[in-house]
Nucleic acid binder design. Sequence first.
DNA 1: CTGAACCTTAAAGTATACTATAAGCTGTAT
DNA 2: ATACAGCTTATAGTATACTTTAAGGTTCAG
Lengths: 135, 135
Amino acid sequence: MKIGQLARKTGAERQTIRYYESLRLLDEPRRNSSGYRVYDDDAARRLMFIKRAKSIGLTLSEIRTLIEISVGKANRCEEIRSFAEDKLRDVREKISHLQTIEKALSDLKGLCESSGDDLHCPFIETLLDDCIKEN
Amino acid sequence: MKIGQLARKTGAERQTIRYYESLRLLDEPRRNSSGYRVYDDDAARRLMFIKRAKSIGLTLSEIRTLIEISVGKANRCEEIRSFAEDKLRDVREKISHLQTIEKALSDLKGLCESSGDDLHCPFIETLLDDCIKEN
DNA sequence: CTGAACCTTAAAGTATACTATAAGCTGTAT
DNA sequence: ATACAGCTTATAGTATACTTTAAGGTTCAG
Ligand SMILES: [Zn+2]
Ligand SMILES: [Zn+2]
Ligand SMILES: [Zn+2]
Ligand SMILES: [Zn+2]
């Protein structure tokens, strides 16, 4: 399988595959006599692993960590669980941060909706005034 | 007020202030005889506006939009409310995406915890296998 | 044999929001 | 006088995850 076939099979771009190789997310493939990359099904499996891992919010560097933990030998469940806990904590923090933002935004929007004063929109005024006490 | 004083007053870095100016988030200040930037309290207010707007999750380009909508004249509440609605939709989408990720991660972690098989960790196996049916 | 499709590399561009560096001018305190 | 803080500009670096470009070699159909 050359790079274009692998790309078609997995839905990744050729350049992305080379990029992942440069990040050591994919093993260096063997080369044919013309220097072209030649892949097997394990490479496709690895690439799909990366795609799925990305879809659950892992960064490429986290995915490399996961590959390093689990490649070849036994999967080191203890490390994997602690990895998952760290990531879950991150995700939950992000959610709660966004919920704070959501509340702030909808509060401001509510102020604007109930004010009726187009000259001093409380959405804008609140952002302008809350921090500096016009000294 | 020179740039250093404005920086101290608002907690922004001098370079950040110049950067915001280059993005037209801050008006070009007047210059003194040596070419130094000279600011007034309105500039400080504007800078704090940017800080607060960032704290509720707005990007610099969204903040520029908000400034363009509201600067000088009446605040155009209708546009502001539609802006807020767009942003709220974004934030809610992000939250729900993260909640999906949270569920996937904790499900995988649960699989690992209840398996006891360190040789084929279901966390890794699921990511490896779900997409390609080892053809 | 020519052109299209496919492969190679290295380097630069994209987006976001800064942060740092270089090289140099200004202002003030001692 | 001179050190030191503070100002100027333009340019490059950081992080993430690609995408694009340039310049060229390979393979195969017609
Ligand atoms: Zn309003
Ligand atoms: Zn006010
Ligand atoms: Zn496990
Ligand atoms: Zn399997």
